[in-house]
């Protein structure tokens, strides 16, 4: 019944400094894959991560569609393996330092300034900052974050043992994490804006047939209510206009994702949602700056796709450095 894991995410050596061939921004699947390929090709690589390693993938309880793991693998464990592989080839990885600005100095020289005041110099930069869970932008959301409202069922699910919880959003992430919550909670109520669930069929089947689940479709959530902690979710039926209050102790929000690209706004070309435009080799419009993974425009947010992007970007960087 118990599992015991040994993680290596705690080793935290500083950067060796000097001029890097490649600075990768973001240590999710795209960034770490690029680091594996680049470092293995003797490209001096530094990965800068604003938070903890692994990106969104690390907060996914179980990844079932990453090839090579027929039983599925915990997102955090998969990301730990990516990280070990990147370090093995000599990539340096720094956590908890956010890149605030990329400054082109001259051809073949870029500077990345970070929140801690460090300045890293690189010949090429890869933006692999991914995306983060979208907020609802509703009354009560910020107030009750960490007080019953959560964006990480994997982390916080065990705190809701035998309690009633609500999952807002029934896309694949909402249902995958809802399934995880069904293991702890007394009852899980799913609320969806659309008249149907856009999730993978297998996840729909598993959650909808579960005895502890209830689904509401075509509902607009209007408020998270509480008193010190969450007490209810208020929703309005989009067809009938009927307003209903669901009493609950926990709310988990899975309503899609938004990119983390504010720091390159006005520099790198983006689409109207803030995703970075690239060509098929992951070049952005700016020389020496590449992008890969969820952050890229018209992409699908999957670990396999991020891995593919990271690979292409590392090879394009190698080509670029060779002619610089």
């Amino acid at each position: 019944m118990f599992e015991f894991k040994i993680g290596e995410e705690l080793a935290k050596p500083g950067a060796t400094g000097g001029l890097y061939d490649l600075v990768v921004i973001g240590a999710g699947p795209a960034g770490m894959t690029a680091a594996i390929y680049a470092a293995r090709n003797s490209i001096k690589t530094l990965v800068l991560e604003k938070s903890s390693l692994g990106g969104l993938a690390a907060t996914t309880e179980l990844i079932e569609n990453y090839p090579g793991f027929p039983e599925g693998i915990a997102g955090a464990e998969l990301m730990d393996r990516f990280q070990k592989q990147a370090r093995r080839f000599g990539a340096e990885i720094i956590e908890f330092d956010e890149v605030l600005q990329i400054e082109p100095v001259k051809q073949g020289l870029l500077r990345a300034r970070t929140d801690s005041g460090e300045v890293y110099e690189a010949r090429a930069v890869l933006i692999a900052t991914g995306s983060r869970p979208k907020k609802l932008h509703l009354p009560g959301e910020d107030e009750f974050y960490g007080r019953g409202l959560s964006y990480c069922a994997t982390c916080d699910g065990p705190l809701f043992k035998n309690k009633d919880v609500v999952v807002i959003g029934t896309g694949s992430s909402g249902l995958q994490e809802g399934l995880n919550l069904l293991g702890y909670a007394k009852h899980v109520t799913f609320v969806e804006f659309l008249p149907y669930s856009p999730a993978e069929k297998i996840l729909q089947k598993r959650t909808m047939s579960h005895e502890k689940s209830t689904f509401y479709f075509n509902q607009q959530v209007t408020e998270i209510k509480g008193e010190r902690v969450v007490t209810a979710v208020v929703m309005k039926d989009r067809a009938t206009g009927e307003v209903q209050e669901l009493p609950t102790e926990g709310v988990f929000v899975y309503v899609g994702y938004a990119p983390d690209t504010k720091f390159v706004e006005g520099q790198v070309e983006m689409n109207k949602w803030g995703y970075v435009k690239t060509d098929g080799k992951m070049h952005t419009n700016m020389e020496g700056i590449f992008a890969a993974g969820d952050v890229r425009a018209d992409n699908v947010a999957q670990v396999t796709v991020a891995v593919s992007d990271g690979t292409k970007a590392a090879l394009a960087v190698r080509e670029y450095l060779a002619v610089l």
Partner: peptide, 13 residues
């Protein structure tokens, strides 16, 4: 912490 939280060991250490 909870045992299933990947960010927790970092905080605990």
């Amino acid at each position: 912490v909870t045992p299933t939280c990947p960010y927790c060991p970092g905080a605990a250490v």
